[in-house]
């Protein structure tokens, strides 16, 4: 099994016009070379993760919100907000899904409130930048699927709005 590769500075630069908060976070993650520091930051993100509120969804969560190929049993919702943006909500049903919780927190913090056009420009490869080589291909693809699901929901709202 391989691992998602680390993004180069050139590739990061190519992701211009990303949501500002995401760009800032990726730059921070890119600058961290100490593995323990990176792990602590990701753990902190996972600790801050808050599950989808009951007013948006309750168990059993609908299959249509489930992230395909994510063995952490992640779910995503998009709550439309004024100004062509959305608040993204997540649930992670697998108690061992610590990386999924960290990513859910990151996606909520950086993509909620961002213009849909910018959300659509986010490459799922940000998973490699965030988690580096320390994640298996299977898990990496599950996490990338979380990013794609956020984009699918954003795209659905965009189409609905015409």
């Amino acid at each position: 099994m391989g691992q998602p590769g680390q993004r180069s500075d050139r590739e990061i630069g190519a992701m211009s016009e990303l949501p500002e908060k995401l760009e800032s976070l990726l730059a921070t993650m890119q600058s961290i070379t100490d593995q323990n520091e990176r792990v602590q930051m990701l753990l902190d993100f996972a600790d801050r993760f808050r599950e989808v509120p009951g007013r948006v969804a309750e168990r059993p969560f609908p299959e249509q919100n489930r992230v395909a190929f994510c063995e952490s049993e992640a779910y995503v919702w998009a709550e439309e907000q004024p100004g062509g943006t959305a608040k993204f909500h997540f649930a992670v049903e697998n108690p061992s899904g610590v990386s999924a919780k960290a990513l859910a927190y990151i996606l909520d913090r950086t993509l909620s409130g961002a213009p849909f056009e910018q959300v659509m420009r986010v490459s799922p490869d940000i998973v490699s930048t965030i988690f580096r080589q320390n994640i298996s291909m299977g898990k990496g693809m599950g996490l990338m699927a979380m990013v794609r699901t956020v984009q699918q929901l954003a795209s659905q709202i965009m189409r609905r709005k015409g």
Partner: peptide, 10 residues
């Protein structure tokens, strides 16, 4: 030993 490398530190 786990699949998710964040599990042990958590």
């Amino acid at each position: 030993s786990n699949e998710d490398p964040l599990l042990y530190p958590s």
